[in-house]
Design a protein around this nucleic acid. Sequence first.
DNA 1: GTCTTCGATGATGTATACATTGTTGATGGT
DNA 2: ACCATCAACAATGTATACATCATCGAAGAC
Lengths: 225, 225
Amino acid sequence: MSAVAPKPKSNSAVALEELRHLIFSGELPAGSDHLESELAARLGMSRTPVREAALQLEGQGLLKVRARKGVRILPISIEDMIEIYDVLTELESMAAASAAKKGYDPKQLQTLERTITDMEAALSAADRDAWAAADDAFHAELVQLGGNSRVVAIVGQMVDQVRRAKAVTLYMRPLPTQSNKDHRSVLEAISDGDPQAAHDIHYAHRTAAKNVLITLLRQNRLHNL
Amino acid sequence: MSAVAPKPKSNSAVALEELRHLIFSGELPAGSDHLESELAARLGMSRTPVREAALQLEGQGLLKVRARKGVRILPISIEDMIEIYDVLTELESMAAASAAKKGYDPKQLQTLERTITDMEAALSAADRDAWAAADDAFHAELVQLGGNSRVVAIVGQMVDQVRRAKAVTLYMRPLPTQSNKDHRSVLEAISDGDPQAAHDIHYAHRTAAKNVLITLLRQNRLHNL
DNA sequence: GTCTTCGATGATGTATACATTGTTGATGGT
DNA sequence: ACCATCAACAATGTATACATCATCGAAGAC
């Protein structure tokens, strides 16, 4: 038999994926309104699963369902970015400390190490998109190693909310050479089992990243994304 | 005219409120399954708004919608409690530090002060329920003063998830006299504009509270609530 | 000419009918 | 007696029809 599983995905799940893709790709721009009927027609299904998906996405902070006005794709303001980065800084640093406490052996840190080498390779090739993907993977794996599933979920949601803004600034900023050094230092601290160092280094890393991003947005008058 | 606003609440919103109440009151016990049709009949509406409410509650981590098996009220394990308290410790301490940085004047800290005097009064009267309510109010106001709306939302969700467990242990633990001293110290640190102190004191406070709770649950073999 | 009111419009909110699919039980074979 | 297969069932997932209500525009009065 063919190897692929038939994958019986519900329409509601499809709507969720598709809407997320449409939002992240910018096909549904920030601040725009869309009727449930339009979206349903676009996805080739009825309003019901689309509406359910919209409700869930509202819970994830990506859009807002407004009575008789359709769903509005929520723009991210600079103030939102600051809030989100503050949460990310706090929870990721906590995860870094937790990971260091667990005493992982090198084999278990292989995945994290790999994301760093990927970033370094992307940096050498000046491939910003590859770098961003590896950077995402690093942060995702880091919180995973922290071992707190709530933190993983919250961080995932926050990252989703700033995804568009990060994409915009990706080509505006200088190549992040310092970032890579920071990442490797965090890995070393985790590998050495030094929670305080892992926490502090990552905290400083995220704070610096936040400041770069905020400055960039302010300079370019990008108050809503 | 009569003073009360007509309050045109949608059935979906009503379902959300009612289901939350049924869960927190224990009328829908942890681990129990319930058909959408049953719940709809119970709330006097059709399945549609009930289903929408269930989807949102699933996003809030209070229940799980299982295909063809109804919704299951999610029990909270000790491991869940640890995860949640770790997040609460981190984010509330962050909020305490932020609040201290803002330089609030006494008038703006009136509400927080009030929750502390309420706790002290409840403690003198040995009124555990009143104490718990005031304690909730203190933590809610604290994160509010922190000024990060994401933190407010996340902490609110986490508090909801541990609400049942806290209710169970409320009458098992000794009267929390130390807690009140901690609260007042946090208020003082915020009032003094000392972020580090506010952070550290609250962090220690939450950590201690976590340990008390976990120990209590373990001793009483309450692994699921 | 402008303001107000009323009605038509259209989109969400809700109910209901239907399709889909896992589960459970019975039936028959080994 | 036990296991496997199949069929009826039941509950969710989905579509659709309908109710409700805000918004917008037009018409009429001042």
